[in-house]
Design a protein around this nucleic acid. Structure first.
Lengths: 204, 204
DNA sequence: ACATTAATGACACCGGGTGTCAAATGGAAG
DNA sequence: CTTCCATTTGACACCCGGTGTCATTAATGT
């Protein structure tokens, strides 16, 4: 898909850059000057394109940070479908979310910088709600399918919202504690969620 | 506090309007033309003030919708403190959140319109994350205090995040079902959360 | 050569938000 | 009443993100 626009046999002028290329350029500037202090003009100039062209690759400056997030949601949907149907909903949820956040060893640093921006820069923090809505929809769809109700019903929606919140808390904790392992933190957080955050660990 | 600036014995020019006054003017325009189509210039003109002055009453156009939200958080903090110390955390949480969303019979319609804007207008939806951060802080502080840990720890943060998510799901459900009662919906949603959204309703 | 298709970039424009500063307003002291 | 001081106001200029428009450029096939 990324090279689809470069495929031969297709008329018209070739794209002069790509999303990943712009992303790389932008991240360099974000690292050096910070997100807010980096203007779209800066990114465009550094990438050798016009300001207007930038907005043909990304809907907004905020969206640069999110990479292929939306595409990955499809993968998440598949992982949900692959879980054994008899498994409790919250158990599947925990497994899939942990798996979804598994990144290649080389990519873990990039993942960290991404989340650092999303969770700490107010503008991106706000914008994240819009992007995470799709994430929630995937979760709600799964929870609804499993329990035989509509995705718009209260329970699946509450599950999706609570799951997102739990994941965000885990992300924040992970960012604040450099030595911690994201998968472990997510696992414990979702275990707590499935237990209703109760004091007693289990039914006696 | 609202009339503090009008109190005698204080030098300087009198404020020419107030937050509540601007809020009323703005909501009229939002109702008629929608949030996005209403510019700050429109509000200022309708209120008979300058555009620059508007931003001395509100940090942003988004904040107009939130009324005295931040002040109410202090009340929420008090309600938490008033709960019996032996009560389970999630039980106190449920009670306080339900109570916090109790509004006078005459104000219920205004509350509904507020939430409708916050939850349905993308710009406000995004911005809400920033405002709700304070709400989460109050919840995390309470949960941490009860369990004897720091507010920044994973558990209280996860509880706060999940609680917010649950409340949002309840709000959305309430907005979508005009016949429903907000307190009831919140109550059932938080009961589910405390139960870990499990299939079995209780320990056998 | 020619039409077609697609991407580009320049330009103008809108709207939210901020910094600055002179002017307006009102109380208090002379 | 006049002067001084504190405070709010509004005008102006400016920055930046985002959009609509349109001529131009680069690639294809005929």
């Amino acid at each position: 898909m990324s090279t689809a626009a470069n495929s031969p046999g297709r008329p018209g002028r070739r794209p002069s850059t790509s999303q990943v290329e712009l992303e790389k350029v932008a991240f360099r500037l974000f690292d050096r000057n910070g997100f807010d202090a980096t203007t779209v003009d800066d990114i465009a100039k550094a990438a050798g394109i016009g300001r207007r062209t930038f907005f043909r690759y990304f809907d907004s400056k905020n969206d640069v940070v999110w990479g292929a997030f939306t595409d990955q949601l499809e993968y998440m949907r598949e992982r949900f479908a692959a879980r054994p149907p008899a498994e409790p909903v919250m158990e599947s949820l925990r497994a899939v979310v942990v798996d979804f956040n598994r990144v290649e060893a080389g990519e873990t640093d990039r993942h960290r910088r991404r989340l650092q921006l999303i969770l700490r820069v107010p503008a991106l923090q706000a914008h994240s709600t819009l992007r995470y809505a799709d994430w929630r929809a995937v979760v709600a769809e799964f929870a609804a399918h499993r329990t035989g109700v509509h995705p718009g019903d209260l329970r699946p929606q509450a599950i999706a919202h609570a799951a997102l919140g739990t994941a965000l808390a885990a992300y924040e904790h992970w960012l604040g504690d450099p030595g911690s392992d994201l998968a472990t933190v997510l696992d414990t957080a979702f275990a707590e969620l499935a237990r209703g955050f109760g004091e007693e660990s289990r039914c006696s």
